[in-house]
Design a protein around this nucleic acid. Structure first.
Lengths: 340, 340
DNA sequence: ATATTTATAGTAAACGTTTTCGTTACAAAC
DNA sequence: GTTTGTAACGAAAACGTTTACTATAAATAT
């Protein structure tokens, strides 16, 4: 039962050839005869040979492993609905290309309290994808500036490959839709500071301005992403105003759930008394009643492109176009905005 | 900029000692003098030395890396709400103990179409955690029977360490609660075949029987987990019966959303006309109106225990108790069940 | 006939560690 | 003064690969 792991050497002995020949046969080099190759492969199979990633990595400086850095402020990690969709898609296409995925934010607990970069070097990742982090963390900066191929998601660092969701256009479509429904008093429970928030906020103001709608400062309040309680509080503050809004924008679909509760607790109806819109396009939005109006971010596409680009960069560091790719989202009108 | 990676050899040259001494100094062996150790460490730091995981793994047969096998039938993968909570917790405690996490289901796409076991051997995982898979897949069986330390979640294979959510007790509490509210006509949209389903189903029947409640066969219908559409259909079938149930159990909270829609589309109110209960305890249930009655599975604890046990097993293969650990859930009464 | 090419296979070094076993120097013990 | 003990360090093999270089034989060209 306790079979020792079988190595090239075992095969070479069994076949009466040298280790080099076995290696070359298995890797289909041209300087090994056809029958020799076939014989070696048969024996390798019979012996149950598996290559050793560590040895290969040591020799070739290639691990076929990609590091993933995902650490949001709320530590929701894998449970973050938008990002786990992105990650899932990333993972799938990486695996289709023969790469494995290892999380990179685990060095902290290691004895030496490894930095992200140290961890990446230690594991020898061929490349790294960064998303959902504190973009001002110097450790993140160090990693991005290193010589390891890197792709970032939803944030542009220097001149590196980035894949970003089109928050400007998404917010524009959303705001225009709300305008078209006749709303004038529009509030925005915005997320905390980040480039995503920046884009959405700017687009929010710009679009409404184009429709000659003025947004008083007290209509824009802050609540962290995915924080239903904060959204609940924020909603109450908005509805307590002398002149409350008729429509409220939320940082994301999930946070909007908190807003929904606040509204309903006051005996108000959605959308009859108050209209709401979310952002992200989570699966639940379409299962709620009323269906929530939102912008669905193409997380599938974002993850896929990020993986494809990163792998390109890994395989061809010089010849890969460094670009920032913007992935469009799609307005998904529900029934949570009343036509005025 | 293009600094070559610094190795033990570089340090040894800079310090005028042998590589062996450097290695031992860095690993705090007792046969190196104090000042030598300190000096070596300083130089290592200044030079920016990072150990090389591949070389270490090759030499020591230890990777400090754990393989994760997560492949549900619906391919929801990382987006599966219950399992990503478990995984997140698993990941956190593994990382606290110096282990990294790599997904194991990526071998399929690799050139040789690696089996799970091949992949695990290839990467040299110190251990493997298995959850949410087709438990009848022969490849899974092969992996479980291998000599690699393994822990399974929510399924017991042979005599291996398993961590399972207490579906029997959870369903018991849930069913008893519904009985106490006075319901007699209780339907169950059950999940597809699995040990989880088995446990819940058996407990469902048993508990209701103890309360002298008889469940007609047409009250029990099948719908895949997390499938809102199937739950929607199933709900309609149940409500079309001549004698429809007063309370419907769903496979999970998410699927229940489909049921909610079916009920509301008929102009029925929850819980006034129809009562419902879910399972899992997802965050959304508490944000819905009415709040959904459910059983919250302790995903945090399950992931943590699984990781702890696996690491124990890795570090002490002989001395670790092989056991199946049952983690209790908790009934979370909401407002979705009417008191009759 | 000799010279050149081609096909096939082997030799050996290298990747960066860890670890076993020496070796040396010197202090303590008889 | 010889043994014994101990502390500090080094030499070298080993882990499983890959690859540049070399070697041989057969085939082809001259």
């Amino acid at each position: 039962m306790a079979k020792r792991k079988v190595s090239l050497k075992d095969i070479s002995i069994a076949c009466g050839v040298s280790v080099a020949t076995v290696s070359k046969a298995l890797n289909d080099h041209h300087d090994i005869g056809q029958e020799t190759k076939e014989h070696i492969r048969q024996v390798a199979d019979k012996l149950g040979y598996r290559p050793n990633a560590a040895a290969q990595a040591l020799k070739t400086n290639r691990t076929n492993n990609i590091g993933v850095l995902f650490v949001d402020e709320a530590h929701s990690g894998l449970t973050h609905d938008y990002f786990n969709h992105v990650l899932n898609s990333f993972k799938n296409t990486a695996e289709e290309n023969g790469f494995d995925i290892t999380f990179i934010n685990g060095g902290k607990a290691r004895i030496n309290n490894m930095s992200y970069l140290s961890h990446a070097i230690y594991r020898g990742f061929d490349g790294v994808v960064i998303a959902c982090v504190d973009f001002f963390d110097p450790e993140v900066d160090e990693l991005v500036k290193s010589s390891i191929p890197v792709v970032t998601i939803d944030h542009i660092f220097y001149n590196r490959i980035a894949v970003i969701s089109d928050n400007v256009n998404g917010m524009k479509e959303l705001a225009e839709y709300v305008c078209e429904q006749g709303h004038k008093k529009i509030a925005y429970v915005r997320g905390v500071e980040s480039s995503v928030t920046q884009s959405r906020l700017a687009s929010f103001y710009k679009t409404l301005q184009e429709h000659n709608i003025d947004i008083p400062d007290e209509y824009v309040v802050v609540a962290p992403y995915r924080d239903t309680d904060a959204a609940y509080e924020a909603t109450n503050r908005l509805l307590d105003l002398q002149d409350p809004p008729t429509c409220i924008f939320y940082p994301d679909d999930f946070a909007a759930l908190g807003g929904i509760n606040a509204i309903r607790e006051r005996g108000l109806k959605i959308p009859d008394d108050v209209s709401i819109v979310g952002y992200d396009g989570l699966e639940i939005t379409s299962r709620l009643t009323p269906k929530m109006t939102t912008v669905v971010q193409d997380s599938e596409k974002i993850g896929k492109i990020a993986a494809t680009k990163l792998i390109d960069l890994i395989n061809n560091p010089k010849g890969t176009l460094i670009e920032q790719i913007v992935v469009k989202g799609k307005l998904e009108p529900g029934a949570s905005v009343k036509k005025l």
